[in-house]
Amino acid sequence: MAKARKKADLPTKVCAVCGLPFTWRRKWARDWERVRYCSERCRRAAKRRGERA
C-alpha cells in the first residue's frame, strides 16, 4: 500500500482572481496545468470580469 502524501508536499498555485494560494486536489490530477482558480466562485468572478478561462 502506498504512503499518503503530506499536504505540505503537494504542489501549490496562486488563484488568478483572489490571489490566495491553493493546493493540488485529486480531482484536478488530469488537468493541473490548466487549473487557474481556487474555487468555482473565483472562476465565475473571472467570467464576470471578462478574464479568459
Rank of each mutant, 00 (worst) to 15 (best):
W32A: 12
A46R: 03
K7Y: 07
R25Y: 01
R36T: 12
S39V: 02
L20M: 09
D9L: 02
L20G: 05
K3P: 00
A53L: 11
S39N: 04
V14C: 03
D31W: 06
V17N: 07
T12Y: 10
K27T: 06
R25P: 00
F22T: 08
R52Q: 14
R34Y: 11
T12H: 03
A46I: 06
G50P: 07
R34A: 15
R43D: 04
C42W: 08
Y37H: 12
A53M: 14
G19W: 00
C18I: 02
R48S: 14
W28Q: 13
W32R: 08
K3R: 12
K13P: 07
K13W: 01
K47E: 15
E33Y: 01
T12P: 02
V14R: 02
W24A: 02
R34L: 14
S39M: 03
K7H: 07
C18D: 06
W28I: 02
A53Q: 11
G50K: 11
C42A: 09
A2K: 04
C15V: 00
L10P: 08
K7L: 12
P11T: 01
E40A: 12
C38G: 07
W24E: 07
D31Y: 09
K13E: 09
A4N: 07
K3S: 12
R44C: 03
P21C: 00
V35G: 07
W32E: 08
A46K: 01
A4R: 08
F22Q: 11
A53G: 15
R5V: 04
A53E: 15
E51T: 03
E33N: 10
E51H: 09
G19E: 02
C42R: 05
